[in-house]
Design a protein around this nucleic acid. Sequence first.
DNA 1: ATACAACTTGGAGTGAACTTCAGGTCAACA
DNA 2: TGTTGACCTGAAGTTCACTCCAAGTTGTAT
Lengths: 146, 146
Amino acid sequence: MTGSIGMTIKETSEQAGLSEDTIRYYEKIGLLPRAERKANRHRIYQIEDVETMKPITCLKKRGMSLDEMKPYLDLARNDALQASPEVFDLIQSHKRKIEQQVASLQQIIDLIDSRLVRGNFAAEGCSLPEEEKRMPNAPGANRSVS
Amino acid sequence: MTGSIGMTIKETSEQAGLSEDTIRYYEKIGLLPRAERKANRHRIYQIEDVETMKPITCLKKRGMSLDEMKPYLDLARNDALQASPEVFDLIQSHKRKIEQQVASLQQIIDLIDSRLVRGNFAAEGCSLPEEEKRMPNAPGANRSVS
DNA sequence: ATACAACTTGGAGTGAACTTCAGGTCAACA
DNA sequence: TGTTGACCTGAAGTTCACTCCAAGTTGTAT
């Protein structure tokens, strides 16, 4: 039964677009919280669980490692950003990272458009900070890219 | 000497931000062309070589695999986009991918801004094509994308 | 009672992308 | 003359992110 009480790991896997093994693996490494179990030890999931799984695929495709995305998912589980100021800051800094990604992707697009001449391809085009050099407040640095 | 004739692998590694081992590895797997050698078999590089190496780090951070980026780098080496129409199409499709990345990153940013409510986090937010469905010859499909 | 499907677990295997290692060459310098 | 340092090669080892497997349990169907 697809029942009102919860979904099996199989159903969940189909919904979330992750294999059953992958879901168990994510649980094992702590990317997902330990799932509830039925009396027979089988995992049960709710739709909310699926919704916390979907972003994983999404973030992974951007080159984010499973470790890096943990705080993101923790946040997604905690319902809102009302959390602690520290978490808020963390998300803000993630946001800045993403904005930089967008900016340099946009540069690549521009370069492709302008014929992609070797010397310019990525001479300065890729300004992702190796290790985020958390600029204290980064006033002019991040602009919207559109 | 940093000399006029070429750079050592060490200098190149510093310039390109890749380890010497990584550069040799990239050569081995064919991501970089076989470097010129001196009489003593040591590799020599020119500034242009560094410039073809820099984008690798850049593209990698976006989650592109080494295999995927090969055509990109081939192009970067061939001086201009005057190449073949096939290559042009390929680059165009890469460009579209990147644009989709930008779009969904932007969605993430928007969601963070709007408080990141669980259910919406990535319900539909992630529309990257799973496997690039390499269209055999890209019929009418790719022209201008903007 | 027996078979079967759907799950469980822990652990081993896989592929990509490096990184490290062991052993060797070569040129320059004390 | 030896030894040091920068490089070479091929191969083995590591990490990440899975993926597969074997053995066991439970619930349902025949």
